[in-house]
Amino acid sequence: MSWLNRTFMNGYYQGVVETAPAVLSAARVEELAVAMTIQHLRRAGVQISTIHDFLTSDIGADPRLVSRLINLSAAELETAQARVLASAF
């Protein structure tokens, strides 16, 4: 991933964190942001290893969380996101 893409994706991740419902715990916000970022980058054709490295090295996301979510299908990622958001209401 180029420097520009890393900067954009860092902003994407931070945007998810900043706009997440305030009632969510930090762990749930991280889960939402990681799931959304994985889904976005996979749709853009970014390799799984690059996504993993970006989230764990650049963002500092929990490696266990990234490993748990990174191999989910698009539908499973959407379900994970919906589950997090549903817990806020």
Rank of each mutant, 00 (worst) to 15 (best):
A27F: 01
L32P: 01
G60C: 01
G60H: 03
I38S: 06
S57C: 03
F54H: 12
M36W: 00
E31G: 00
S73I: 05
A33N: 01
N71K: 14
L32M: 01
D53N: 15
E30R: 01
D58C: 01
A27N: 06
A33T: 02
I59E: 08
A33P: 02
A61S: 11
L69H: 05
I70S: 08
L65P: 01
Q39D: 11
I70P: 10
T37H: 10
A35N: 01
S57R: 12
A44D: 13
I51M: 13
L72D: 12
L55W: 07
I38D: 06
A61E: 05
I48W: 04
R43Y: 14
D58Q: 10
R64T: 14
T37E: 07
R42E: 13
V46I: 15
A61Q: 03
V66S: 05
A27M: 02
D53I: 01
L72Y: 14
D62A: 05
R68K: 14
R42I: 11
R42S: 11
I51T: 14
S57E: 13
A44S: 15
E31F: 00
T56C: 05
Q39G: 11
V29E: 04
A35D: 00
T56A: 04
L41F: 02
D58F: 09
R28F: 00
L72E: 10
D62P: 02
S73M: 06
V34K: 02
Q39K: 13
P63F: 05
I59S: 04
L32C: 02
